[in-house]
Write a protein that binds this DNA or RNA. Structure first.
Length: 255
DNA sequence: ATGGCACGGCAACCGTGA
């Protein structure tokens, strides 16, 4: 199984780029974040022509997630259980090939002051509870998406981010570790323990040419899937294209 | 030393992103 996650920063702006990438990379499952549109605006036909079925959890203007898959799947959730506060479209969960796959767009946590940050932390707690419940059922599990978490200092280029940023605050990192402690493996870091690996470069300040990036898009897999990992890496070349997203796809292959 | 971008919604900028 080849699975990818990509924050595309508006699917309507990025349709051509994403379609071209899908044709080249041919993932079995592609999780999209920040599609920034309602389901009716999602260009499902274009991907249907490539053999992909879409499940879209959309929202006007902000957020929005989707799954594209060329293998059969069943939708198991369109929101993260917990608080009834998710007017925000940030979670979609499917079952495919015997694996539960959650595509997520975790709140950034920098807007709305401490209230916004608290929402991020609660969202992480709810994600942990969901993952724990699925693992308790004995499911093989993949959590993939834009976590808006830079797990460790080596996941940020020096000077790329302020210490007070919600992506690196200790409370954020502690909750990410709690997820890992459920028994999940950070696929990219597991296969690249010493490498400098980034998945995001800001549009501003020449962040891409200066390689001032962050690693904030992740694929976490349960133990038996970790043993099947063959490759796990971002596709950096996508950041060099015309009108790119500020994130690149992260691709994982399981044998 | 510093400033630097892009998106959607809307019809002038502004909230958000990270």
């Amino acid at each position: 199984m080849k699975l990818a996650t990509w924050n595309v920063n508006s699917i309507r702006q990025r349709e051509g780029l994403v379609r071209a990438w899908v044709e080249r990379a041919a993932p079995d499952v592609l999780l999209l974040q920040e599609i920034k549109c309602e389901a009716a605006q999602f260009p499902a036909e274009g991907f249907g022509a490539l053999g992909y079925r879409a499940e879209v959890v959309g929202q006007k203007t902000y957020n929005g997630v989707a799954v594209l898959a060329r293998i059969p799947f069943a939708v198991t959730a369109r929101a993260l259980p917990g608080e009834a506060e998710d007017a925000q479209a940030r979670y979609v969960e499917i079952e495919a090939g015997g694996v539960t796959v959650a595509g997520l767009y975790l709140p950034n946590g920098n807007s709305g002051g401490e209230t916004g940050f608290a929402y991020k932390l609660r969202w992480m707690d709810r994600l942990t509870a969901r993952a724990q419940a699925l693992l308790a059922e004995g499911r093989s599990l993949i959590l993939a998406g834009d976590f808006n978490v830079c797990p460790a200092p080596e996941d940020a280029a020096p000077g790329a981010i302020d210490a007070a940023d919600a992506l690196v605050r200790p409370e954020t990192r502690a909750r990410f570790r709690r997820l890992i402690w459920l028994g999940l493996t950070d696929a990219v870091r597991a296969l690249h323990p010493r490498d400098r690996v980034f998945t995001f470069w800001d549009y501003q300040a020449g962040a891409w040419p200066r390689d001032l990036g962050l690693r904030i898009d992740h694929v976490l897999v349960s133990a038996e899937l970790a043993e099947r990992l063959v490759t796990a890496a971002p596709d950096r070349a996508e950041r060099d294209r015309a009108q790119p997203s500020d994130h690149v796809p992260v691709v994982v292959e399981l044998e």
